[in-house]
Design a protein around this nucleic acid. Structure first.
Lengths: 162, 162
DNA sequence: AGCTAAACCGACCCCCCTGGTAGGATTTAG
DNA sequence: CTAAATCCTACCAGGGGGGTCGGTTTAGCT
């Protein structure tokens, strides 16, 4: 229960978009819309997820500049960058907000009782050391995983049906 | 918002108990109750946390065999093992349950729609690869941090009041 | 023996956030 | 003009986190 389903769904969307993206063709015109963007309906069907909810999810990805969109008939979504250049850290952060293992990490000015150990003075509590390490572990694993890896993995899985 | 406050409070308790434990005296009778166990009331006051709630938290630590207790007057809690031999992974796991970055990780038989990508066949979804890495990052950071480190850190902080 | 400090236990409760729905407005290909 | 799509805002139900309360047992002290 660490990440919410927004992260799950969002990552799925990204992987699916990565699969749609034309591979092999190296360095042709970037940043331009593909001929056939993928509609959210198609993605929802492919993954068996509720369309209306995915709208909210994909909106976050768009606002974060990870995907681009075209409106109107035959509109849809595509990756704003090649999958190799997208670290999963960006994706998860866009979906979940800041990666903080504990509440008192997010914003310093939420004077909850949680960080009662540092009432006024900014002297760090012992737990902070621990959560910092955990946070580091999470971020490192997300930084070093690219969307391309997941897409690659997904393609391999297809080839082994049974 | 990754870990709940149970983890925060529980870790605090453990650190506090580690501070109480007699240091320096090496290898005297282990596993025996100290002369003056620390009452939960004292811990609650020291940390400014609600006593009644801490009871639930410390119960988890006790059931996990991390702390021991004595009932009755002048009763209280103490570490079941020296702090050097307690990995924070055990502590957090006792408090939070299994460390799983996503719901479908906890128990395999919760056939939610979450893991719709593997409806019947056990073919791993691409997201699973990602969550596995994240989980690894978290666990590694928790395994390599001992309670003794946090206690040490906490003691250092004391010496620098301003 | 009896008082009191403590651990123990289980039931209860409130609020917020997650996960999801509903309904519309806007854009654009054909 | 119409259908297909993105976009936007409001709404809602349920569950779990974060506690509280009351009572029972244990054990030291006088």
């Amino acid at each position: 229960m660490i990440f919410s389903s927004k992260a799950e769904y969002g990552v799925r969307l990204m992987v699916e978009l990565g699969r749609q993206a034309p591979q092999g063709l190296p360095d042709d015109v970037p940043d331009t819309a593909p001929l056939h963007p993928t509609s959210l309906k198609a993605l929802a069907d492919a993954e068996g997820l509720p369309l209306a909810y995915l709208e909210q999810v994909v909106a976050r990805l768009r606002k974060a500049g990870l995907v681009m969109s075209a409106r109107g008939a035959h509109g849809g979504y595509w990756l704003a960058r090649p999958a190799e250049e997208i670290a999963m850290y960006e994706v998860v952060q866009a979906l979940e907000g800041a990666i903080a293992p504990m509440d008192c990490f997010v914003s310093e000015h939420t004077d909850r009782v949680l960080c009662s150990h540092e009432p006024d003075s900014g002297r760090g509590c012992a737990t902070k050391l621990l959560w910092t390490r955990v946070q580091g572990g999470i971020i490192r694993s997300l930084q070093t995983t690219t969307l391309a890896e997941l897409v690659e993995f997904s393609r391999r899985q297809d080839r082994v049906p049974a």
